[in-house]
Design a protein around this nucleic acid. Structure first.
Length: 936
RNA sequence: GCGCGAUUAGCUCAGCGGUAGAGCGCCUGCCUUACAAGCAGGAUGUCGCUGGUUCGAACCCGGCAUCGCGCACCA
């Protein structure tokens, strides 16, 4: 608690830990679904349990927590639900790497022991992450913490898989998939990243079987970047409109090294302009070739095994690794005279995101989700007459989302991994001799018992074995399958059959907003909406939206000081904890949010790696310290009273500065609430920073110091006025702390307790947002005040120009002005303002003052600052400056007014304003000239 | 190839039709009992280039350039 005798600087460490503990142990963020208030819910993007958090998580957390804390202050029934993701392939990759370092493979351990290791890893990494999220002051409900592989989420996955299968949206089949030889698993299209690499284009000759064509040609020339696949070629394709080859279509070629007769086919896919216009076709090893193969009914010949080595179909190349095989095939082709030439060639190669090796398109039997019906449903929601659902902020991301949902390909969901949700399908191996083959029948069920019943019904009796022998599919599901269920699995879906919806689901689904980075719109956002379309659109009480979030707030990435994306692999990540330890969680959060612009741009966090410091975060730390000291000042001056004991000020007793700051406060309150409400978080932060520092601290606190310290033996009037000042000060500060709370939760909680004296069990976090005092709003007064502030600034500048020390007192300051508002403020509040310019007095004058002075001009006002003796050079310099400024303005304004079209076409108020400004500038210039002339 | 974003003060970025802004940094002077993590004052910009719309453009429209991102991809 800040008190007068307490440190001058804010030390966040102890404060933050204390409030985090107090919030959590009191269950402050553990909402009751039955509690009143409009529901507001957010499920956090669950971080992967792959180690520890990075700055991107801190950023995401700062944004979400700002939003939910605001909504809580607004009186909503807020649930913010935390959790982590099991990150199937990522975690398994880490663990396998660890095993490899110990000279082991996962097969040496066996599935069960390996999974034990994985759970141990999860416990450690998950614990670290949860600890880090706590250190940020996340106002989530830890009692509802979830993990994508916990019992509830696993049940949801099984239920979802079964329902999708029942709806015909999940199927199993043999297709060309992206095979990652490093992880030994299929991966989805999204997990493949195209990378430009420097390779070669090999040109080969494929001889015509017939020996020579009518025109004497004996071969076709094809080019390839992947010579090893030639072993699986089953055709050569040309464009049907290509006159060079029209007469050869239908003939056959003899595949070199292999001797297979392969046809020449005509296919539109082939670009006649590229290369020789002839393409070798390897349907089992290339997606385009696969398509050509389908169209021409070509055989599929797989020449590579799943570990990336050549198989028996590769003949003499069997056993070679795919890259060795490439060299060997080229050498053989050259030796046998089929190699025409080799060119260096830069091209794109698909890489596995996780394995970091080129993926291999391979024929494989996998499980797929049929995405088109789901994507269609999502696109329809986006085009709903009632407005887009979900609503993207910023809007432009909805195009990205929509485009992806258009022409979407089916989603390969099975992974040949152990860490993850095991696929709830059982093979009836008794039908195929005890082994799983591509033709083994299977049943999809919710558990083995149900599977057995289904299998018995289908296969027992007759020629079939009895009892049936089942074996569960050894594969796991894509990690994003369970992530796709996150907004409802975490709320208790599916619940008990026949029972009412789980209370959390009934209360908080759909969630209010999803806050996430643009990099996972496809992986996650679209998967959640597709899953919800299949599983949530038939909720009881139709008419309830099924899209799992009303808004999707997309934010950018955190970049490092060199504008590079922060990532673990690039090694340029910054540990949020380092900055929290140095500056405090509030400072880090405030800095991150403050950087956010409206349009969801990436943010750059400056950082000095030598000293582990960040100027940006430091500036926010300084702001926290400023607030600390402003509150310390209040505590020293409130005479032991609190906002409550002081009570609301009597409106009639308010002095001008009070009315000004209360008007500003009401306006800032309204603006801030609006900004928070529309995700204008950066604007909210900047607005509060400026209000707190530049208005409350710089001006209001200074203006009331005299009233707060009326001196020895004050009269009753002075005491009453002191009380008014105290009341306003207490109100402004207490309310400011509420407005700031979503951004700086710990500091505001701490200072609020200090200011109000509320017991530890009462929380600012749970207070109501203060009502906007509409009566206090006074535009005219705010304008007059900023005019006066401008004049005081000019006066201070005159002092500086005159070379006066800040501590040096001056005599009189005279203001000559035609502005009624300014005149009024100066004459009524002269005692308040005089000390801000260190003058004996400040007052309104007409014409020139009687004392020696130097003058500054602003608008229609002049500031005269008394000086001990006239200082001609200083005065001349000042007037020259004013004159130059006025003349420049005159030139600009006169030019505009001289244009006849301007007066004719511009709105009258703009023209009038322009004329007024011109008159003012001319007056200023004239005045300056006159005074310069007087100087002689 | 298609799409998106960025280009404003030394740095990081606001502003998005009516006379160019903030933070940091920089310069000058101050330990003025809330705060030196501070106070007061100051300097700094042909708003990427180029056409156009407009009385008026950093802002709207068209082109170009540079940087970045996403999607697709020709062997």
């Amino acid at each position: 608690m800040p008190e007068a005798n307490l440190p001058k600087t804010y030390d966040p460490a102890g404060t933050e830990a204390r409030w985090q503990q107090a919030w959590e142990s009191s269950g402050a963020f553990h909402p009751d679904p039955g509690a009143p208030g409009e529901p507001f819910s957010v499920v956090i993007p669950p971080p992967n349990v792959t180690g520890s958090l990075h700055m991107g998580h801190a950023f995401n957390t700062a944004l979400i927590d700002t939003i939910v804390r605001f909504q809580r202050l607004r009186g909503k029934n807020v649930l913010c639900l935390p959790g982590t993701d099991h990150a199937s392939i990522a975690v398994q990759t880490i663990l396998e790497k660890q095993l490899k370092a110990e000279g082991q493979r996962k097969e040496d351990l066996g599935r069960e022991a390996f999974l034990e290791k994985a759970w141990a890893w999860k416990a450690e990494s998950g614990g670290t992450i949860v600890g880090q999220l706590r250190r940020l002051g996340y106002s989530v409900d830890w009692q509802r913490e979830r993990f994508t592989l916990d019992a509830g989420c696993s049940a949801a996955v099984i239920e979802a898989f079964n329902r999708l299968h029942e709806q015909g949206l999940i199927y199993r089949g043999e297709y060309l998939v992206n095979w990652c030889p490093a992880s030994g698993s299929a991966v989805s299209d999204l997990e493949v990243e195209m990378k430009e690499v420097d390779g070669h284009l090999w040109h080969f000759r494929y001889p015509l079987t017939a020996g020579a064509a009518a025109d004497g040609r004996t071969h076709l020339e094809v080019a390839t970047t992947r010579p090893e696949t030639l072993l699986g070629d089953t055709a050569v394709a040309v464009n049907p409109k290509d006159p060079r080859y029209a007469d050869l279509v239908g003939q056959t070629l003899t595949l070199p090294l292999v001797g297979r007769q392969i046809p020449i086919v005509a296919d539109d896919h082939v670009d006649a302009e590229f290369g020789t216009g002839c393409v070798k076709v390897t349907p089992a090893h290339d997606p385009n070739d696969f398509a050509i193969g389908q169209r021409h009914d070509l055989p599929l010949i797989t020449v590579m095994a799943k570990d990336g080595t050549m198989n028996e179909a590769a003949g003499r190349f069997q056993g070679l690794d795919r890259f060795e095989a490439r060299q060997a095939v080229v050498a053989a082709m050259e030796a046998e005279g089929f190699l025409v030439k080799v060119e260096p060639y830069r091209h794109s190669v698909p890489f596995s995101d996780r394995g970091k090796v080129p993926v291999e398109p391979l024929l494989s039997t996998q499980w797929f989700v049929r995405t088109e019906p789901l994507a269609t449903r999502c696109r329809e929601a986006l085009d709903a007459a009632a407005g887009p659902d979900p609503r993207f902020v910023p809007e432009r991301w909805s195009k990205v989302y929509r485009d992806w949902l258009t022409d979407i390909r089916d989603w390969c969901i099975s992974r040949q991994l152990w860490w993850g949700h095991r696929i709830p399908a059982w093979f009836v191996v008794s039908e195929t001799g005890g082994a799983i083959t591509d033709s083994t029948p299977y049943v999809v069920a919710r558990n083995e018992e149900e599977a057995r019943a289904k299998a018995e019904a289908q296969f027992a009796g007759g020629v079939h074995a009895h009892p049936v022998v089942l074996e569960q599919d050894p594969d796991a599901l894509d990690t994003w399958f369970s992530s796709g269920l996150w907004p409802f699995s975490t709320l208790g879906w599916p619940g008990e059959a026949g029972e009412a919806e789980p209370p959390d689901l009934a209360r908080w689904y759909p969630t209010s907003v999803l806050v996430t980075g643009f990099d996972i719109i496809f992986f996650w956002v679209a998967r959640m909406t597709m899953m919800a379309g299949a599983l949530m659109s038939d909720r009881e009480g139709s008419g309830i939206p099924w899209i799992p979030f009303r808004d999707v707030y997309i934010h950018g990435l955190v970049r490092d000081e060199n504008n590079r994306k922060m990532s673990k692999s690039a090694g340029n990540g910054i540990d949020p904890l380092l900055l929290i330890e140095r500056y405090g969680a509030d400072a880090l959060r405030f800095a991150l949010v403050r950087e956010v612009a409206g349009a969801g741009q990436d943010i750059r966090l400056d950082y000095d790696r030598k000293s582990d410091t960040s100027a940006t975060v430091e500036a926010s730390r300084n702001f926290a310290n400023k607030l600390w000291n402003a509150t310390r000042f209040a505590l020293m001056n409130l005479g032991g009273e609190t906002p409550a004991s002081l009570g609301a000020p009597d409106r009639a007793a308010l002095k001008l500065p009070d009315r000004w700051i209360l008007s500003r406060l009401a306006r800032v309150n309204r603006e801030t609430a609006e900004r928070y409400g529309i995700y204008g978080l950066g604007e909210a932060a900047k607005g509060l920073y400026e209000f707190a520092w530049n208005e409350v601290c710089d001006w209001y606190l200074e203006l009331i110091k005299r009233r707060l310290n009326p001196g020895e033996n004050p009269g009753t009037e002075a005491l009453a006025d002191q009380r008014t000042a105290r009341q306003v000060l207490a109100k402004v500060l207490a309310e400011l702390l509420v407005l700031l709370h979503p951004l700086m939760p710990h500091l505001s909680e701490e200072l609020w307790h200090g200011l109000t004296g509320e017991p530890e069990g009462t929380f600012l976090a749970l207070q109501p947002w203060p009502a906007v005092d509409e009566m206090a709003l006074d535009d005219a007064l705010e304008a007059s005040f900023s005019g006066v502030i401008g004049l005081i600034r000019i006066g201070r500048n005159l002092r500086a120009v005159r070379g006066m020390k800040p501590s040096e007192k001056i005599g009189q300051v005279g203001i000559a002005t035609e502005n009624d508002g300014i005149r009024q403020v100066i004459s009524i509040a002269s005692d308040d303002f005089k000390s801000l310019i260190k003058a004996d007095s400040i007052g309104i004058i007409t014409g020139s003052p009687e004392y020696k002075s130097i003058v500054g001009i602003s608008g229609t006002s002049q500031v005269h600052v008394e000086v001990p003796e006239s200082d001609v050079p200083a005065l001349r310099a000042r007037l020259d400056k004013d004159l130059a400024k006025a003349e420049k303005e005159i030139k600009g304004l006169a030019g505009r007014l001289a244009n006849p079209n301007f007066a004719a076409k511009a709105p009258p108020e703009v023209v009038a304003e322009c004329r007024a400004n011109l008159a003012e500038a001319e007056m200023q210039a004239e005045l300056a000239r006159k005074r310069l002339a007087d100087l002689g």
